[in-house]
């Protein structure tokens, strides 16, 4: 029997399987196991969580493949890893070691200020960040099988995540209300492929799952992002920079699952120790923002 490997359906399909869950940043095997035991649907293996990358400064690159492989060996859930925006060399390395998903991420220092990775050339699926619909559709056009709104990584402040998710959803609603002969003008204004705009007009959603990232630090943050339209949440620094990662991981998983049930979100939020320290995004210098990387 003939088998076709790594088709568009198997790539988007894996993203669909992660819906309704939490994807957690982890920096070692021990954290990966905590995440899996807490019910994470996937882990993002990286050397430093975004809040530390922010603190340390300098060039942030792909993590040590050896560390990623150790995490892949330790857990049964899918393992993701980050490459720099446009750095197809790092992406090739990550594909060679067999990661399940690559995040072409603004959290790392961009390697190309003009071009993103041509993701169609890879067998491994990619997730990319966006701040608005045009950015999301350009990434899907390049082959991203999953989109996540960027938020502001490592800030512990959900305000940018909310802004980006509301923007994407609002822009999609506006497209649905149009006549079909108005869609090419939308594609022109969004600088997005016409086929993607047309898909949204017909289906009212992105052609790939839409997840939320960047600043989610509490169960209520996660529940709100799910109600705003996120299909899954990424929690980066929020878990292992909190004062009790085991409890936070569990509480955020349960709140994400029961996001429409405030009673349950309240129950899991009770008695949680201190969340991670947050940053006021408005007081940050433009050059400190990660969300503005990529276009």
């Amino acid at each position: 029997m003939l088998a076709e490997e790594s088709t568009w359906r198997t790539k988007v399909g894996l993203a669909e399987m992660l819906r309704g869950g939490v994807i957690m940043d982890v920096t070692n095997v021990e954290q990966a196991k905590i995440a899996e035991d807490a019910g994470a649907v996937s882990v993002m293996a990286l050397e430093r969580v975004p809040s530390d990358i922010r603190k340390d400064g300098g060039v942030a690159r792909m993590s040590d493949p050896d560390m990623i492989v150790r995490i892949m060996d330790a857990v049964s859930i899918p393992v993701m890893a980050k490459c720099r925006i446009g750095h197809f060399g790092e992406a090739q390395v990550l594909e060679a070691i067999g990661v399940d998903f690559i995040d072409e991420s603004e959290v790392l220092t961009p390697a190309d200020e003009e071009n993103h990775v041509d993701k169609h050339q890879f067998k491994v699926p990619f997730v990319c960040g966006c701040r608005n619909l045009g950015e999301a559709l350009r990434r899907i056009g390049e082959g991203a099988a999953m989109i996540r709104t960027k938020g502001e990584a490592g800030s512990g402040n959900v305000v940018e995540a909310v802004r980006h998710m509301r923007t994407v959803i609002k822009e999609m609603r506006a497209i649905q209300a149009l006549r079909s002969d108005e869609l090419m003008a939308v594609a022109k204004n969004l600088q997005a492929p016409y086929e993607q705009v047309s898909y949204i007009h017909e289906h009212g959603k992105l052609p790939v799952p839409n997840f939320s990232a960047g600043g989610i630090a509490t169960p209520a943050d996660a529940a709100m992002m799910m109600q705003l339209g996120a299909e899954t949440v990424f929690v980066g620094s929020g878990i292992f920079k909190s004062s009790d990662p085991v409890k936070y991981a569990r509480a955020i998983v349960l709140a994400t699952q029961h996001y429409e049930d405030p009673g349950e979100v309240a129950r899991v939020s009770k008695g949680l120790p201190k969340a991670m320290e947050g940053l006021d995004v408005r007081q940050m210098d433009e050059s400190e923002l990660m969300a503005t990387r990529g276009w």
């Binding site: 029997m1 003939l2 088998a3 076709e4 490997e5 790594s6 088709t7 359906r9 198997t10 790539k11 399909g13 894996l14 892949m72 049964s76 899918p78 594909e95 067999g98 990661v99 399940d100 998903f101 067998k123 491994v124 699926p125």
Partner: peptide
Amino acid sequence: RNAFGRQIQSFETDL
């Protein structure tokens, strides 16, 4: 589990 390999070995076929 994961008996056909990791994600890059995921596939479709006529069964």
